[in-house]
Amino acid sequence: MTAVLEISGLNKSFGGIKATDDLNLSVTPHELHAIIGPNGAGKTTLISQLSGTQQPDTGTIRFQGQDITQIAPHKRAHLGIARSYQITSLIMQMSVIDNIALALQAHDGHSFRFIRPARGIKSLRDRAMSLLDRVGLADKADLSTAALSHGEHRHMEIAIALASEAELMLLDEPMAGLGLEASAQMVDLLLGIKGKHTILLIEHDMDAVFALADRISVLVYGHIIATGTPDEIRSNEAVQHAYLGEE
């Protein structure tokens, strides 16, 4: 089975800080692979290099066998890579449904179409509505995005990632800032999509990670110190010493 994602020898520094340090990782089809690590370990930087908004100094990234290291971020989206943001990144001035419809529109041919009103395109609207339904926001569809709560924004992030129907989803701390109940909802939501897509999940919430992940990699100072099943990671001494122990 060829890996969906194959990262080899990835390095990235910011001035003196090595945010990514000789990172190697292989993610297999339809697994939910979690990446855990302390603050500043370089998790978001890794996601940004995978989605293409940041360029690695050295190393290669392969997606479904193709070297994508030099490919522009908007093209990676079309190859089948979607990302959600740790710090909510939505179009605040637009309505909730417009945000989702735009995500769908991105994968519905080019948008050099000037005549028909986009809000009148039923296929996009209907699919956007059903995505909002899936994340429990159907009744908020017409509100301004800015008017929604933080937790609702996190659900919109997931709906947008789902809209792409991407093979690989890069989810950067979807539970960041959520309360207990909202976190549990998010875990349910992720359990629902698990197995249908390949998911690289970054998460601080250990209960969520151990409930969801097929495999876990532990990132410390930009380097992966261990990869394994949840049980293997739990019992790994180096991991406990470097990370789990101090939590």
Binding site: I91, D98, A101, F114
Partner: peptide, 28 residues
């Protein structure tokens, strides 16, 4: 007409959040 079309939605989306629009797959 233009701003209400698909093209216009992309233009306005990029005003609101350029990075998001790029990662959605739009060549902003």
């Amino acid at each position: 007409m233009i701003v209400n079309s698909r093209f216009g939605m992309v233009l306005q989306g990029a005003k609101g959040n350029e990075e998001r629009m790029i990662s959605l797959g739009f060549n902003v």
